[in-house]
Computed example of a mutant assay.
Amino acid sequence: MDLFGDLPEPTQTAGRDTENTPQPSTEDRGEKRKHEVTEEQEEKKVCKGVARLRGYVAARRGEREEMQDAHVLLPDLSPCMASLPHQVSRLAYFAVFDGHGGSRASRFAAENLHQTLALKFPKGEVENLDKLVKRCLLDTFKQTDEDFLKQASSQKPAWKDGTTATCMLVVDDTVYIANLGDSRALLCRVEQEGKDECKKCVTLALSKEHNPTCYEERMRIQKAGGTVREGRVLGVLEVSRSIGDGQYKRCGVISTPDLRRCQLTHNDRFVILACDGLFKVFTPEEAVKFVYSVLQDVTVERKEGQTAEEGGFEAACQRLANEAVRRGCADNVTVILVSIQF
Rank of each mutant, 00 (worst) to 15 (best):
R52G: 07
V228E: 02
K289Y: 05
L113M: 07
V46T: 13
A287T: 03
T203K: 12
Q143W: 09
E238P: 04
A321D: 03
L113N: 01
P22C: 06
L53W: 01
H210S: 07
R218W: 13
C251Q: 11
G101Y: 06
L169A: 13
K160T: 15
E146Q: 15
H266D: 14
T174A: 06
E191P: 00
A158M: 00
E146G: 14
I340P: 00
E286T: 07
C251D: 13
C329R: 04
R135V: 05
L149W: 02
R60A: 09
E27A: 11
T166E: 05
K44P: 00
L206W: 11
E309M: 15
E197A: 12
C198M: 14
E323H: 11
M219D: 14
G162F: 08
A205P: 07
E111A: 10
E238D: 05
F94G: 00
E309D: 15
V72I: 06
E146W: 08
D331R: 02
K223N: 14
P22L: 07
R327C: 13
T140V: 13
V325T: 15
I243E: 02
P157Y: 02
T140C: 08
C251L: 10
T11N: 07
Y176C: 09
S339M: 13
L7Q: 02
P79F: 10
A165M: 09
P284F: 05
V50C: 15
N112H: 11
E66G: 03
V233M: 04
V239H: 00
K200F: 07
T26Q: 11
V175Q: 01
G162H: 08
D17A: 09
E127W: 12
A330P: 07
E238Y: 11
E310A: 08
L337D: 01
E197G: 12
V171Q: 04
N211R: 15
